[in-house]
Design a protein around this nucleic acid. Structure first.
Lengths: 189, 189
DNA sequence: AAGATTACGCAACAATCGTTACTTTAAAAA
DNA sequence: TTTTTAAAGTAACGATTGTTGCGTAATCTT
């Protein structure tokens, strides 16, 4: 009886993500999104309770996009498993600067990295096995490595640094090697 | 003939900086600042052309505060000169999270670190002398070191990481040592 | 002490935001 | 074909922002 929906939730989220990836979350206004979709604001509020709910959806969509970067990098086989995660993080920072800021340069007062070791368990396990060090050491190893990856990524996302994939790759290897020597030496003392 | 000014430019900037350091630049509105000062918005626009000009002034004030961190750390003598700069950067990130974001986590499309080598000349000179490597190598050395410092600082500023000064200091030394070995070895090849 | 000058407080303006009555209209059901 | 139902369009509302005109009042000059 009623007219069909002009847009699906996914179409709206996709258009919203498009706005956000170009100019950040602040560019996501009801009217701007309506213009992007070529309609009034009504269809938006028909499918989403309010702009907050839509923002959450866009945030999730951004996470999914990052996950696809991780997957692609891992299955690509260009790098070893552990390294491919770092390369994906940095490539995401380069190609999706606004989304990277949204996901990884936001305030995290309620989710400290030190508190959710579980999330990085896959990485620490890899390192434990590869280097034959304890879990605590592997955790610190990964944290130090990730600080470096995060440093490069944030610099690239803010357009403060422009490094080629090759240079990034070489440097990550150097850093990894340096860390490895330090941690293996630590074990001998 | 006219009544006295109720506030000086510096007083206004100081109050504005107070708002920004607590809740970021978006918290700096004309009315909020007027409330903070206990006056109407008129005195603000009497001394500043518009809010943009005031924002610039607050930005400069934030830079000055960071400079004082650098100075204090350098003259303190707790760390070697080069290290004190990194420690100051990280301490600033910890104690002035919002100002750190404002200064060092903003978009820099027009001022790439690779383009203004001059700004970091003081550091590269230090490293050239200390390690006896070329200017290009010293620049890369500093860049790698600074990526690490920046990584820690941004994590701390976003409350994603909480490290004691001691842990930061020890880790920076380890990283520095690792880098030094790599760069000295590179020279021998 | 009176006058001139101008900073200040009040209140309004336009612009922009999220949100929502009210109306229109498309499309399924009769 | 007509009726019904709800999605979509229009346009308004209230809130918040920067900014400014107007009247008041403070203080220096005379």
């Amino acid at each position: 009886m009623p007219p069909k929906f002009k847009f699906t939730k996914d179409e709206i989220i996709s258009a919203a993500l498009n706005l956000v990836r170009k100019n950040g979350m602040s560019a996501l206004t009801a009217r701007a999104l309506a213009e992007e979709l070529g309609c009034s604001v009504k269809p938006i509020f028909g499918l989403f309770k309010n702009m907050d709910e839509l923002q959450q959806s866009v945030f999730s969509a951004a996470k999914n996009l990052y996950q696809s970067y991780l997957q692609d990098s891992a299955f690509n086989g260009e790098y070893p498993v552990y390294k491919s995660a770092g390369m994906a993080y940095i490539r995401f920072a380069k190609e999706e600067k606004e989304l990277f800021k949204l996901l990884f340069m936001r305030d995290r007062r309620n989710e400290k990295i030190e508190e959710n070791r579980e999330e990085v368990r896959q990485f620490t396990d890899l390192i434990m096995e590869k280097l034959g060090i304890s879990e605590d050491e592997a955790y610190m190893f990964h944290l130090e490595m990730w600080i470096y990856v995060h440093g490069i990524a944030t610099m690239i996302a803010t357009s403060y640094l422009e490094w080629s994939d090759t240079l990034v790759s070489e440097t990550l290897t150097d850093i990894f090697t340096g860390l490895k020597h330090r941690y293996l030496q630590k074990g001998k003392e």
